[in-house]
């Protein structure tokens, strides 16, 4: 095994690592469920971008999408699945590991 393979970044989840998908996952990790429009505004993306990214996360089994109505208004609700929650937890643990290496990084850049 090469030394590069030991760096924690190799354990990051490529699907979650994209900034938009990370923000979506972070929002859903903090929520029981979140409405599509709320996530769109919080992540600051358009409907189509969010829809596309959510589809990718849904295909991976990380996010569940539920459509329903509140009164006559159609609503789309997003939730993290158990698999998604577990993957996100692991991803964040690796981020913490990398971030905690900050002093070494500072030395490298000094």
């Amino acid at each position: 095994m090469s030394s590069a393979g030991k760096h924690p970044r190799h354990r990051l989840d490529e699907l979650i690592h994209s900034p938009v998908r990370f923000s979506i996952m972070a929002t859903l990790a903090a929520s029981e469920q979140a409405e599509f429009g709320f996530v769109r505004d919080l992540v600051e993306v358009t409907d189509s971008v969010l829809s596309k990214q959510v589809s990718l996360l849904e295909e991976a089994g990380y996010v569940a999408v539920r459509k329903g109505y509140v009164g006559k208004r159609p609503r789309t609700w997003l939730t993290l699945t158990a698999k998604g929650r577990s993957a996100f937890r692991a991803h964040v643990a690796v981020l913490h590991e990398i971030a905690s290496a900050a002093p070494e990084t500072v030395k490298e850049h000094a």
């Binding site: 690592h17 972070a26 929002t27 990790a29 903090a30 913490h96 971030a99 900050a102």
Partner: peptide, 26 residues
């Protein structure tokens, strides 16, 4: 992710805190 530095990891963690705070407030 090969170029991920501790700085960008920290930024992602800050984003995690930001959205978490908004979710709590809302």
């Amino acid at each position: 992710n090969s170029g991920l530095t501790s700085h960008s990891a920290a930024e992602e963690l800050q984003e995690l805190d930001r959205v978490g705070q908004v979710v709590r407030d809302r």
